[in-house]
Write a protein that binds this DNA or RNA. Structure first.
Lengths: 155, 155
DNA sequence: CCTTGACTTCAAGTTGACTTGAGGCCGGAC
DNA sequence: GTCCGGCCTCAAGTCAACTTGAAGTCAAGG
């Protein structure tokens, strides 16, 4: 069994067939076709899909994942060497997300019982000081942490 | 200046006026009306909005936030006592999200250079062992961490 | 031959939290 | 009186990552 049908890939990867078609349409994976037009995937697609899911878990959007995959020569499945390079960037992302959440939690702890919730001072309603800097950046921040703070008035 | 216009609340809270109308429609905030039909907000709406944003940052959906607010007698703005009770639950949420991310990061570290990305063994593409148990639960998990693992075949 | 099941395409629907646009009202300044 | 900014409502659009549905093709089995 050299090539896999979409159903087989769906079963082995745990992804829906519709998702696989979508990924192909988005250029994340590729497939050859039978004479009848049915997709045939190489086994390597499974590793590619694992890579995609891992990247999603780190918080990357599909276009970013596509770029990461496209940056590999010949559009090949990531090797150990590629993997090491990419995962370094991912770890930084995760570290920052973790830091943001920890700061949120600590702000919460420091707020317990005070009931302050100041619009500008309370860290809970204003977690943006984590890697804020300008304001337009911070794209790495998970959606849940991207709530913008108020302009700068008292609350 | 006893009551605030929607524009003033928008400026002070940093939220768009359209968002405030939306929140009112969703029952998260309330406003009185002028003879002409314009909204007038009490100052307490600012604290309520801070509460809402904090809850969003913790990862709550608007319906959950509405319930949390509605659980307060008279639909009042949370007092220090209410706040302490609610924030306990939130902290648990955050703790679990942090744990999930840390596990993801550690899985990443342990993967660097190995290039394994096994569909079933690699923690990076399969972070579900964090608070998994059954599979239908884990609702607290941030959307980014909710990717399901493959059924249970080799990769 | 005819059915069955897996596959195909393409368009449209889903979810959450809003934003945008059209069309209109209201109150104060000129 | 009329002009403007700010407000109103309601319907529809946005985004991401898919899913769902309709209508059709293909290969194998009875």
């Amino acid at each position: 069994m050299e090539l896999l049908t979409i159903g087989q890939v769906a079963e082995r990867s745990g992804m829906a067939a519709s998702a696989l078609r979508y990924y192909e349409a988005q250029g994340l994976i590729t497939a050859s076709r039978t004479a009848g037009g049915a997709r045939r995937f190489p086994r390597s697609v499974l590793r590619r899909l694992a890579f995609i899911r891992a990247a999603q878990n780190v918080g990357l959007a599909l276009p970013e994942i596509r770029e990461a995959l496209a940056a590999l020569p010949d559009g090949r499945t990531p090797s150990a060497r590629d993997w090491a390079r990419l995962s370094e960037a991912w770890r930084a992302r995760l570290d920052e997300q973790i830091a943001a959440l920890v700061q949120l939690r600590d702000g919460l702890s420091s707020c317990i019982g005070c009931g302050c919730l100041s619009l500008t001072r309370c860290r809970l309603s204003n977690p943006a000081d984590v890697a804020a800097g300008e304001g337009a950046g911070a794209r790495w921040l998970s959606p849940a942490l991207r709530r913008v703070p108020p302009a700068s008035n008292a609350g």
